[in-house]
Design a protein around this nucleic acid. Structure first.
Lengths: 134, 134
DNA sequence: CTTGATCCTGTAGCGACTACAGGTGGCACA
DNA sequence: TGTGCCACCTGTAGTCGCTACAGGATCAAG
């Protein structure tokens, strides 16, 4: 029961077969059992772990962060605190990035506002790029 | 006047020499003039363009987006509108990502809250990873 | 005119996948 | 019991956006 081929696992999680093998190779996903002939046999827990990895990666956690969270998965004491620490740290970074982005957005928006549609010789954007941009 | 070596350009912009050559190779930065002996000679406009590229990359714009902005750099009409379009689109994506992240943060935080420090057998994080995490 | 820093090209490496080539495994169906 | 065929295996090479190095040429100061 619960014995999935790599193809089934890929279908259920939406992760490419090659990527699953890659995750296993770099130690993000536990090595599954094998059939006599060498085919991988995954369990439901692999499904959950892989879904977790996928979600975390999609949300911008680095493989290192994912690994760090995963390495706390045993019955260790401070696991939750450490997981939260990683998540909070990550969130901090994203918020900082977001703040930077909003700053740029304001810059671009105001730049664009001053360039009222047609070609103005002192449009700041054109001014910045003219003659050098390929 | 304004003739910079690649080293000076690197120092002024904080972009690695190799990266400057790379940007030139992939068409992000205009090809500079050369000395008799083949050394690149950059202008102040290169400094501005490269700074722009650097900032945009740091803020998460893809090379494709940067290229798209740069390609509007000539004295074209709708340039500003299009630049704004790209920026707004990018901002949208980041906001969506940020929303996803906040959702995960809430999930993790609440998960963590329920796991009150020590090892509890039904801590959701451990439960999710136990036995499969490497 | 020599010396040493800087520059040149070209190639290879990184991380995190992705894709392919060439070779087995597993299993339904005859 | 074959046999056909898809799914799976390993291993290598490609991608993207750089980064680093090797081996050589150029520049500018003394």
């Amino acid at each position: 029961m619960g014995g999935l081929s790599i193809g089934e696992l890929a279908r259920r999680t939406g992760v490419h077969i090659e990527t699953i093998r890659y995750f296993e190779k770099v130690g993000l996903l536990a090595e599954p059992d094998r059939t006599e002939g060498g085919h991988r046999v995954f369990t439901d827990q692999h499904v959950r772990a892989l879904s977790f990895i996928k979600r975390a990666r999609e949300l911008g956690f680095t493989p290192g962060e994912v690994r760090a969270i995963l390495e706390l998965g045993g019955p260790e004491e401070a696991c939750c605190d450490e997981v939260r620490e990683i998540a909070v740290h990550h969130l901090d970074q994203v918020r900082r990035k977001m703040a930077d982005l909003e700053r740029l957005e304001r810059l671009l928006a105001s730049t664009v506002e001053r360039c009222s549609g047609g070609h103005v010789p002192d449009c700041p954007v054109i001014d910045m790029l003219d003659g050098v941009a390929p």
